[in-house]
């Protein structure tokens, strides 16, 4: 497949939409790794798809699977940590892009939200450091996707994540917010999905 043929047939779009026959798909794949334009077309679609669809769902670092499940279960029956703001720090290693030196890792703080929605004292965070917000999606028999959106008291979207598998929806979820996004005030973490899920409300004080 030549570049002109690819452009004329909108092969990149057809590839993304899975409209190509096997032979056409092979021909396009053969072509696009050698073509800056078509590579950009496909990678752009991949980047948009990643941003729209997968969100930023990550498992808690350092938790073993059973520990995460146990934590979720404990939260679900209302036994866990509803009186102390959980402010901890984690260090994330930042892998260097190819050909570059590794940078100093950014410090990240965590806020663990209480699934019982009981009133919690303000969470105190420091400066412009990233914040990881931990929470569970309190449903049985989850049916993803669930869109989790963090907004401030003015309704401005601070960050969002999409939980797209049953396994992720059954485990604690972490929403990572870049440094400098928070100001002192009230925040709401809403979860949209196959059913109505009460939002999390919490207060942050930035020091």
């Amino acid at each position: 497949m030549t570049h002109d043929e690819a452009k004329k047939s909108m092969a990149a779009e057809a590839y993304v939409l899975d409209d190509l026959e096997a032979a056409e798909r092979n021909a396009f794949e053969e072509h696009f790794f050698d073509c800056t334009d078509c590579t950009a077309d496909v990678l752009d679609a991949a980047t948009i798809a990643d941003g729209v669809r997968t969100g930023n769902v990550v498992q808690f670092r350092g938790y073993s699977r059973w520990a995460a499940a146990a934590a979720a279960a404990a939260v679900a029956i209302g036994l866990a940590y509803n009186y102390v703001p959980q402010v901890a720090s984690l260090w994330h290693r930042t892998p260097a892009p190819i050909g570059q030196q590794a940078s100093v890792p950014a410090r990240e703080q965590t806020i663990d939200l209480d699934a019982s929605r009981a009133a919690q004292a303000p969470f105190i965070i420091v400066g412009n450091q990233p914040v990881s917000i931990g929470f569970v999606i309190p449903v049985t028999d989850p049916r993803p996707p669930y869109v989790c959106e963090l907004r401030d008291d003015a309704g401005v979207l601070i960050g969002s994540a999409t939980v797209d598998t049953k396994e992720k929806a059954s485990n604690p979820v972490s929403l990572v917010i870049a440094g400098g996004k928070f100001h002192s005030g009230q925040y709401t973490l809403g979860i949209r999905g196959d059913r109505e899920i009460p939002a999390y409300h919490f207060v942050v004080e930035v020091h």
């Binding site: 990643d50 729209v52 930023n56």
Partner: peptide
């Protein structure tokens, strides 16, 4: 394990902001 989730998430957040 070495993937930098934070940087990836910042990228995704930018994408979502622009889409909005």
């Amino acid at each position: 394990n070495s993937e930098d989730e934070l940087i990836k998430e910042q990228m995704r957040e930018c994408v979502r902001r622009v889409i909005s």
